[in-house]
Design a protein around this nucleic acid. Structure first.
Lengths: 113, 113
DNA sequence: TTCGTATATTCTGAACATCGAATATAGCAC
DNA sequence: GTGCTATATTCGATGTTCAGAATATACGAA
């Protein structure tokens, strides 16, 4: 794989590598929302929200549509939502694994005493 | 969504947010490889490779199987490969978009002169 | 035990990310 | 124009990530 492609992917992951930005994208899953609505729903500082939105904009993950003095944000491509969906499945699989190994530990512990 | 889940996702993305770590995972797509093989194929510094592998291990993205004095790494869950596959599709879609907007610019430019 | 190979860890300095506070800009109403 | 609301940007402090150098550990062979 060319290095540029790896860098592109890394940049994309970097842009998603923050709980607030993930929360923003999941809020936008069902359609556009104004910056103000995002701030209210996620209980963010105004400046902080704007910074995170700037990161998402810079990586073309999100676009802003200006209307009067509001800006309505939306996710630019459905595949971004799909990435998060796969992540959700991965999280569940990961949880199942963790629970399974905890149970195995319990069993080993009770057998040993 | 609970905050723990968002943090989990963010941590996962953070772990993938480096070109070298993406390269490592793509090398492991078809099965396990020793640390040394990864170092050779990706032309990495030994210490640097080990640090990146440590990051991937810490997030349970990769496991190491020790055999004699080598360590064979493999991706812990197929869904991780799937995330990268969706990313690849996203990348292609993104490229198409960029090419399209470049063409639009050219057209506008030639029309204007 | 000592040697050699494979891998991991620790340290240091540079680069980058994050936050909140303050400030700036843009658009509408008056 | 002034004032108000929504959003963006800049600044400074603090923390995190990175690469490479040096060092440490684990293992098998002799």
């Amino acid at each position: 794989m060319p290095d540029a492609l790896r860098q592109f992917k890394a940049d994309f992951f970097q842009a998603l590598a923050h709980p607030t930005r993930i929360a923003i994208i999941e809020q936008l899953r069902d359609g556009e929302l104004s910056a103000g609505t995002l701030i209210d729903r996620l209980k963010l500082e105004q400046a902080n929200a704007s910074q995170h939105l700037a990161v998402l904009r810079a990586k073309n993950i999100v676009t802003g549509r200006k209307s009067a003095n509001q800006v309505f944000y939306s996710v630019r491509h459905p595949l971004i939502i799909e990435v998060l969906d796969v992540m959700r499945r991965y999280f569940h699989a990961h949880m199942r694994e963790s629970v399974a190994s905890l149970k195995a530990l319990e069993k080993a512990g009770s057998g040993r005493r």
